[in-house]
Simulated scan of single mutants.
Amino acid sequence: MKDMLVRLVDLPDIGSEEKQLFQEENMVFRKPIAAEKSLILEWVEKNFSINWKDEVDVAFSNVPVTCFIAQRNQDILGFACFECSSKNFFGPTGVLPSERGKNIGKVLLVKALQALKELGYAYAIIGGVGPIEYYEKAVNAKVIEGSEKSIYENLLKHKK
């Protein structure tokens, strides 16, 4: 899997998508607080992977937390982290399969990238991308040629 590069000065405006999701789906996007850490870590492991749980754990070690969640009432619908695997990296990120196709992922993505921009970065790296076309369309990300060997190259995997 390759890494991608995003120009942070050209991020799309997600205001209308976020407003629509709030009005029609009662959905909010926010940074979680420390008191929610164990709930969010359990949710990420259950719905995605233990490796991603470990990365989200790092997000809670940062002050402020380097993660956003999408929430409806007491239910977590998705998450997006940044500066977990490495400085200036976006990810991991995930949205429940039942909630995909509603722009939740795009709102989380752009919010995280905006936070990286606020940290002073002009570009951000999306590491180990699966859906290249998604990121090209959502934020005009470009594949970094030769990035097959990235920080994830020798990643240890949990044995079941």
Rank of each mutant, 00 (worst) to 15 (best):
M4T: 01
M4Y: 01
V6Q: 08
D10E: 14
D13F: 12
I14P: 01
G15S: 15
E18P: 02
E18I: 08
Q20L: 12
M27Q: 05
M27L: 15
F29G: 05
R30Y: 10
P32D: 10
A34L: 14
A35N: 13
S38Q: 14
S38E: 15
I40R: 08
L41K: 02
E42S: 15
W43C: 11
W43R: 07
K46E: 15
D54Q: 13
E55H: 07
T66N: 09
C67F: 07
I69L: 13
A70T: 01
A70P: 00
A70Y: 00
C84V: 07
K87Q: 13
N88V: 10
N88T: 12
F90R: 03
F90L: 15
F90Y: 15
G91F: 05
L96Y: 05
S98W: 00
E99S: 07
E99G: 01
K102Y: 12
I104K: 03
G105C: 11
V107M: 05
L108I: 08
V110E: 03
Q114W: 00
Q114K: 13
A115P: 02
L116M: 11
L119E: 13
L119N: 09
G120V: 10
G120Q: 12
A122T: 11
A122L: 11
E133N: 14
E133Q: 13
V139N: 03
V139W: 03
A141N: 05
E148W: 00
K159I: 08
K159A: 00
K160C: 00
